[in-house]
Nucleic acid binder design. Structure first.
Lengths: 218, 218
DNA sequence: TCTTATAATGAATTTATATTCATTTTGTGA
DNA sequence: TCACAAAATGAATATAAATTCATTATAAGA
């Protein structure tokens, strides 16, 4: 793979770091482009952002974007898949930890809130596209992939509920729907907090209380 | 308003019906265009539908569309506002009926489900655009208007919860967040049912049980 | 039937923007 | 410092779709 023409020190460096400085620089530039695109897409939506705008925001020429990404759609796809992977892996990990199911669900909520807060741009973009399970600006292929990621997380959450039911922690209702309900409820809070964080700060304790405790008395 | 040139029978007819046959025909054509556009928009999204396509589906010429709507955006706007109004007025009415707050919330859920089922295309479109509170293909003006419609409904629902709390029907938690939680939870079920109605039929009793009853035991 | 007004048509125009590629710039090793 | 390869550039091109408007068709009254 490494051409003979490469100088010795370069070849040595590559053995060590795997990536040469040049390659690291390229990767960084790529990331800059992705970041600029993310900002613009999440502000204005896929179709209302031009490659020119992305180029300007990233401080490159349009042509350069095409050195890094085949076309606009690829660029977009990569951003969405990034988000989906980030969320899926973080939430899956939480749900795979062993232990008290009640605590696990609470941890899931905490983690989800944290992810939302720390990735507001990504969240806006992701849910604008795949949010209600009604995607529209992306090809069906990608849409399907995104939905499957969401399904995977809900399924894992359902497993936790199921174990919790077996242990008599939770009321014996269909665990899939419990997961759906819990996730949907927390989404409502998170979106509301996303819109206006000052007026509607996200209170995970309140979410838990509404979900887990009795609302209708007697 | 009625020009003198109009013949007698026409003028008489207009006194009675308010609208002449011609006007009724125009209105019907307008509705046909809106219907065709709704179908296409909800299938493929605003930006992936051309005026040509709408014209073909509605069986008119492109130019004709512009006789009825100033431009593509107006056409779109009208469809979204239709939905928003339909939902807001139906749900507001339910929530203004006097009586038992527990029953009112249940009625709200029933009505919402019915609206979803009977207007799947509109729902898909509406939530793809304004769903997560993250609109993107529309101008900010319309986006704000749509969000305010949603807020109004949530506020009304919150009032019902508030009254219910006063009467000790419900656990005394912030009524706004109770409303948000109930609505968010039901949305999750409805979207899931929208995606795959056979595998996930919407069960309002289950939604109520999860929301109102205790989930975490002891 | 003829005339006129009203409405519908769709080819042509305009506009917008994704993508390309000939040219320029930059960085590297000799 | 120079020559060369690699990378970046952005004006030019291609493409697609929104909108217009001169022309044609339709309907209504005389």
């Amino acid at each position: 793979m490494i051409p003979d023409s490469y100088s010795l020190h370069k070849r040595l460096a590559m053995k060590k770091n795997k990536l040469s400085r040049k390659e690291r620089e390229q990767l960084q530039r790529r990331a800059l482009i992705l970041q600029a695109a993310l900002e613009l897409f999440s502000e204005k939506g896929y179709h209302n952002v031009t490659m020119q705008e992305i180029a300007i925001r990233a401080e490159f020429a349009v042509g350069t974007l095409y050195k890094f990404f085949k076309n606009k759609e690829e660029l977009y796809k990569e951003i969405l898949m990034q988000t989906a992977n980030l969320f899926r892996s973080a939430l899956s990990n939480v749900l795979e930890e062993k232990g008290d199911e009640y605590a696990q669900v609470k941890k899931y909520l905490k983690t989800k809130c944290k992810l939302f807060m720390e990735n507001i741009l990504l969240v806006r973009l992701y849910f604008a596209e795949a949010g209600a399970g009604v995607s529209i600006s992306v090809k069906r292929e990608l849409e399907t992939e995104l939905r499957s990621f969401y399904e995977q997380v809900i399924q894992k959450l359902a497993c936790v509920f199921e174990k919790g039911i077996q242990k008599k922690f939770f009321r014996p209702l269909d665990p899939y729907y419990l997961a759906l309900a819990f996730d949907g409820m927390s989404n409502a809070f998170l979106f509301s907090g996303l819109e206006d964080p000052d007026r509607h700060p996200v209170d995970t304790n309140l979410i838990e209380e509404i979900f887990f405790e009795q609302i209708y008395l007697t």
